[in-house]
Design a protein around this nucleic acid. Structure first.
Lengths: 212, 212, 212, 212
DNA sequence: AATGAATGAGGATTCATTCAT
DNA sequence: TATGAATGAATCCTCATTCAT
């Protein structure tokens, strides 16, 4: 491995590590990923990985930051052109669609609170939350344009509620194997056979309509 | 320990174990509770506990079933008398209030998907989900009475969305120690200093209004 | 492995584990012994070992207790028949000889303070110290018989000083490989080429003479 | 950092490093000190530190050399004026007092054999031992003047035994936290509640009396 | 039915040291 | 001479679960 001496080399290396972590996370659950693997896949020694990320949680927080930003960007682009008066349903559909293709991102969100934020430094957490804040405000503003009935500041809050909805819905929409079987075997439980995108869209639409 | 021979003795013992587990869960996080302690506090040996609950997760799923039922009962009683035309805000307030006093129950909900349903039998999961279904439908029906604009079947779905909201909001409203510090130290992040009850009420109200 | 159900079975198992630990300790340094090896050599699983000894340090504290007791017994037998008026040199020689054949025991003593007593429960430490106290007092009494000039109570204290001497002398008498080489290569350092038994005898004799 | 080109610059730098190491050692245990900190506190990079000291152990061996020399000097000054016929008790008191104010030095002595001499070059060890030899002989000679009954050469040997005593007594006089608790909780163990200075003085006096 | 002895998987992290720059 | 990026060894203990008694 060439030594990363310049600041830009180091940034590259951090990026490479994030990429590896993200790739592994798409393949397997968080607990099944160990730091040894991440380092090895990046062609580095374990100790070196720790030069770039202080803990496993910080690494994945950083991954989240990046993936989240990418998703926000995409969403932002979609929302950019919305004319005032766009129906809430259309907006909800946009959001739901943009998430439909990113199941791993949602999985990452669901471990943020219970796992990542337990063993990361306040600085890293603040960084991620700062990013989220900026984006929520920006996209919230777009929402307020599209839905003129939304009062100023309500856009970001609606998004925060949407965020909670996404996380909570994931647990219903992605049942564990035994839960899946339970649902399959009991027709009565059809209520819980939730289609993530559809349900999210419906709930989000309601949220937006109600918020307005 | 007297042998639990009759079916009723066994049921009592199961109940005693649930009670112990619930008490411990109110005192400490799930990971900090071990089966040894549960058994010992109930005056039983570890192996005996396993005669009553096949896994730690099944035990807590059973605890959840019970606590959930109790909470549903209380909520049901509150909603029972609602006249048609009750404003969604009032209903949201009722729900939020009924949860405000039960933080442990919410904590239990948040580990259902990520933890409990990973190592429990489909039968136990089906039991819990069956209970939920019944209650969701019953309370959903009450909602439909109170909010006549709600179409048939929409009540239960609104509740399902509310459930997701509760779970997701918990992660925002109960920051981990480093997250708490991050929020405290960065005034910019005030957006994330969420008051659970207030935020839930607001979001639920929007959901109900929008759903209708 | 047969289950150790009766108390006597368990005592046997504890003993077997102590035996294994002691054997390994005679072969290699403390740091080179791991709990996995101890368990495996005793035909048990690692976890089972922890049912019998809470930490590695407790295990070796228990080993020390036993080996120490054995050494004390041997010494006691030697000292038992000493007539009043035995010269201090003879007594010192007895002690030095009894230790000469037990280099591992001395090595064990030297890690007691720096290692074992750092991660063991007060109860285990108290047990060992209690044993030592009893023996020091008993043998101290014998010393007082053999050396009538010793005032009551001085016997045990002399032994305590002797204990310190033993531990301290070990560091000089058993040089590490590089220290050995340094001494070998520099004739000037002959002063530090210490013969443990001889030096201990000489110092102990002086101590006893001076104490009297 | 200015480059240390001249020999005197390098000596200064070595000294600065020793000073930092000694300061840190007075604050915390050896294991809690890392080379990174030593270098940083001296305003150097880690790698630079290794230009001056080949290993962590060599660094602390060098620290010991210096501190030891200082202590010897002080002791030597105290002993210089002793008239023939000084009682052994007075000499022992001098030694014990001179050590009483230097607990870190004793701590450093106790890790010499078990730690420092395990990973240092024979040359460094020889240097330290050479220093010790010179001082032991010099002070030994003074002892022989003060205690005329001491045969030639016995002075240095008595000091060597004293050295062993100091190291061994330290383990008894500075119990670890659990050992301290064990002693506190069991009145029977009062025998082990040793006051370092007092016990050392008493034992040293006996040693000197007996050696004479 | 009750017991409790036995099992064994599972992994992040530190830090002395090296060596390319 | 100075730097600091890279390396990689090294390991104790917990606890859910099983199963012989």
């Amino acid at each position: 491995m060439r030594r990363a001496v310049r600041e830009s080399d180091k940034a590259e290396r951090r990026q490479a590590l994030r990429d590896v972590a993200w790739r592994l996370f798409q393949e397997r659950p968080y607990e099944a990923i160990n730091m040894q693997d991440v380092a090895a896949e990046a062609g580095l020694a374990k100790g070196t990985l720790y030069l770039y990320f202080a803990t496993k949680e910080e690494l994945f927080l950083s991954v989240q930051e990046q993936q989240f930003a990418a998703w926000f960007d995409a969403l932002d682009a979609h929302l950019a052109g919305l004319a005032p008066g766009t129906p809430p349903e259309a907006i909800a559909a946009l959001v739901a669609d943009s998430l439909a293709g990113a199941p791993a991102l949602i999985r990452l969100l669901t471990i943020t609170h219970a796992v990542l934020e337990r063993n990361a430094g306040p600085a890293s957490i603040a960084r991620l939350k700062g990013l989220m804040r900026d984006r929520l405000l920006a996209i919230g503003a777009r929402l307020e344009v599209a839905l003129p009935t939304l009062r100023p500041g309500q856009g970001a809050r609606a998004l925060l509620h949407g965020y909670a909805l996404i996380v909570g819905l994931h647990g219903l929409a992605e049942p564990t194997p035994p839960a899946r079987q339970a649902i399959r075997d009991n027709p009565d439980l059809a209520l819980f056979a939730v289609d993530f995108a559809a349900e999210l869209q419906s709930a989000l639409a309601a949220l937006l309509r109600g918020q307005a």
